[in-house]
Design a binder for these strands. Structure first.
Lengths: 240, 240
DNA sequence: CGGCATTTTGACAATCGTCAATCAGTGTGG
DNA sequence: CCACACTGATTGACGATTGTCAAAATGCCG
């Protein structure tokens, strides 16, 4: 399988064949991680960068009263913590949701890339900035969209993101999350999440069974959610 | 007055006297902007970077139905759009709230800095990453904190941020926003914002009159909000 | 003083959360 | 194969938070 990171970066930045090979070669330490494991905890200063190759992970914070807020879904091709080298300590945790395949890339390798392959670093920064755009859109969703549209918007976003790394087919994709985890991402209670999900199903917009999510009427779902993919900055080129 | 950007960057990164002078010299085009003016609109590709020197501005998005969500407050020392050069088009707007003094710095100047003063660029990236941390904390607030604690948390954050650029005194600062603008940042209705504000006042936690916000009992407000300033990454050094 | 934006208040409605029970699916051991 | 336990999904009843609408009060500025 083509490395999902390269596949994604190629959409937003210019990478030469040499750059791509360099990225491939940086991925040597690949590990299988079980579901619901922490990759990094708040306060850590990891000396490796983590790249998701398979599975779903998330950024999250846990409040003093035990509530959890998921701040981002990390899917194949996503880098978890490029910023730690600059920021110092992690201000949030990163954990797997499903079982994941994760590449551990030493900071020293990243530093070498920065030195010798500026195009790669630029592409990685592009990626980081897209993630920030996603974060902003989540904030908009939580602040100004009712729960049903917020959820619809999230599903639209995931479809586009997973398509960009070749993991969506026929407007559907693997979605190995419990409703409780989905609730933690939406800022809702699990019960209300269930009700909203039921409503979207009853409206014929989606089907969620087993661990697969199918979008039955993409146009209508996008309209319903007010989804405009511009914030994903994926328009430069088509997948090759 | 000491340039607030330099003051802030000095807290999180190492800048030599030469670096500081270089930053000073990059600020030549300084303009006065009235309140409620757009600096950049969604879709723009500005060829200047904007730096707030005085006043309050914000990042925002407007939905199709006219609702607005403010995604960040930009205060003196904050850079609005360092990322545009990498991302292409703006996926959100930036507008002033109060009257502002804004430095317009050409992208070419930034490119020269990147070439000749890596420490400055590194400091600017540090700043961008802190902004991302703030965004994550806002998401947590919106998702998992009730309105009163969310507002309390925001006030704690603003105090720390404004202190770091020398704009807070005696646990108070200029806060030139209407309640409607505050509501757009919190994701609340203006009416509910007013009620929560009244409650915080009645609890003796804050005073908000005219355009000044005073925190009357900082310890209690921080406890109430569950505020932990770690995410602001301002711990490396004291203000000099 | 008059005009206007902003703040404040009350009454009521909608959304969402909590609690508790039930149902469904899955895997285990006998 | 079935009994059992366990997790996750679903449903109902009810309560809390937040939104909406409309009016009144306040403050600011010419």
């Amino acid at each position: 399988m083509l490395n999902p990171l390269i596949r994604k970066l190629a959409r937003g930045a210019e990478l030469s064949a040499d750059d791509r090979r360099t990225v491939e070669e940086a991925i040597t330490d690949v590990r299988q991680i079980g579901p619901r494991q922490d990759l990094i905890r708040e306060g850590d200063r990891p000396d490796e960068v983590h790249l998701i190759l398979e599975g779903f992970a998330c950024r999250y914070k846990t409040l003093a009263d035990g509530q959890r807020q998921i701040m981002a879904f990390l899917v194949p091709g996503d880098i978890c913590d490029l910023h730690v080298a600059i920021l110092g300590a992690m201000d949030h945790g990163i954990g797997t949701l499903s079982a994941c395949t994760v590449a551990f890339i030493p900071q020293t390798t990243v530093a070498v890339l920065a030195e010798k392959h500026p195009a790669i670093i630029r592409a990685l920064w592009w990626n980081t900035l897209v993630d920030e755009g996603i974060l902003r859109e989540w904030l908009v969703s939580m602040g100004r969209r009712p729960a049903d549209k917020q959820m619809a918007h999230l599903f639209c976003e995931l479809l586009v993101r997973l398509e960009s790394v070749g993991l969506a087919k026929d407007n559907g994709f693997e979605f190995p999350l419990t409703q409780e985890e989905l609730a933690d991402a939406l800022g809702l209670s699990p019960v209300h999440t269930n009700r909203v999900l039921t409503q979207l199903r009853d409206d014929g917009l989606i089907r969620l069974s087993g661990k697969r999510l199918d979008i039955l009427d993409l146009d209508r779902l996008c309209t319903y959610a007010g989804f405009d993919p511009a914030y994903l900055h994926l328009t430069k080129r088509r997948a090759s």
